[in-house]
Design a binder for these strands. Structure first.
Lengths: 227, 227
DNA sequence: ATATCATTCAAACGTTCGTTTGAATCAGGT
DNA sequence: ACCTGATTCAAACGAACGTTTGAATGATAT
């Protein structure tokens, strides 16, 4: 009777999460209704409330599914680098790469939806909804603290306040780049296939971020001649 | 009978625009209902449709009210610099300042809502809704083209593709900084009063952006020792 | 004073939202 | 074969949404 073949144990949950990820990215949380969501997933309208409890709980599940492994990967990479360095501070570039590589790897993942997710994630950093911002903050704060510590050790001569601002700027650049919409593409004039090339994007980003992080201090921000 | 004193000609329109600006910033477009909006503005529920036609038209009016003068100011400043320079290309730092100063001036404007608006604007760059992105793109595209041209003239030796990416990164940093939420503040650990100081923020931003724009090219992005 | 026009108002419109319900269907253990 | 617990289903729930309506009110000009 049913259209589906043999049904794996968590088929329905997964189909809902995949559909939600895509629709949230395309239209946002509020503009995505349960009806279009369940229609796209090919499940009954009541399935979301049965499996997740509510729409809000579904939103949280969408982020946890990807973000928990992403954060674990970042922290593992940082651990690896630090044990390798044997107590010495890491080069700032290595810290930057440890953070952004996880995101950029997913930019290239068009098959299993990773690319969709990082675009959603990039947008959510500036999401107005209080509970959603709180969720993101909570999911990230441990990771941020670890990277803050690593940068502080790597750049002891940079005043903490200046460092925090520059970390803030770096997150902004990354988040905006991940969120990048078609509009932005048009403005920037980049070719579409370019954005799929995670390796090239990493080099562009690392170059920009490293230079920004190492910018000369304050008052006399003189204009250097371009390379 | 009415609570208000003598009523200036466009009082109601202005009250609606002010309330909309604030609520759109706090909760987003979809999550802001006509009922809470008109309640905050102290006007009748039907007033929005009477004065603006629809909720979507109101959104457009909110952006036009601030963005048109902002763009005009930016272009005027660029014109001024270019006539002053007498045909010579401008220093990139001056171009950057011409663009961001208009935004940052409004960050300090807590009284007449400019600060509220730039936060709203920062968020809207990554807004999922297609019509809203189209509106922003349309309102901005002339300005962007002029600044693209200025940067291209200022940095002729930088490949256009690389320049566009770096402009993209710079917009990201600015937009994220403007949108900055309490969550971000918490993460960055900056003191609240700091964000009101437009002058200090401009120096921080310009330092970061200039360095990023002048980053050494590609393949060998070696780690320089911090200043 | 009266006619005119713009604006405000309370009430209602039809639609869509997230969620709930209770019966139908399915798989696995005994 | 039958019971059991998990899952799916069609249908309905009340609430909130953006918008419309037509009468009441305000100010202005004749």
């Amino acid at each position: 009777m049913t259209l589906r073949a043999v049904k794996p144990p968590h088929e329905t949950r997964t189909r809902i999460l995949d559909a939600a990820e895509d629709l949230f990215m395309q239209h946002g949380f509020e503009a995505t209704s349960m009806r279009m969501l369940t229609a796209k997933a090919g499940v009954n309208l009541a399935a979301v409330n049965y499996h997740f409890g509510s729409k809000d709980a579904l939103i949280e599940a969408v982020f946890r599914r990807r973000l928990d492994p992403m954060n674990a990967e970042r922290l593992a990479e940082l651990d690896r680098l630090e044990t390798e360095a044997n107590g010495k501070p890491l080069p700032p570039e290595a810290i930057i790469r440890a953070f952004i590589r996880t995101s950029l790897k997913m930019v290239g993942d068009t098959r299993s939806g990773g690319r969709t997710f990082v675009r959603l994630l990039g947008r959510t950093y500036t999401e107005p909804s209080k509970p959603i911002r709180a969720l993101i903050g909570q999911l990230y704060c441990q990771t941020i603290e670890r990277f803050k510590a690593a940068f502080t050790r790597a750049l002891p001569q940079l005043p903490r306040e200046e460092l925090f601002w520059r970390m803030h700027f770096m997150f902004g650049t990354l988040s905006y780049t991940l969120a990048a919409t078609d509009t932005v593409q048009m403005i920037a004039g980049t070719k579409p296939e370019d954005r799929h090339d995670a390796r090239a994007l990493e080099e562009r980003l690392v170059g920009f971020l490293c230079a920004g992080l190492h910018a000369p201090r304050a008052e006399n921000t003189s204009v250097k001649k371009a390379a």
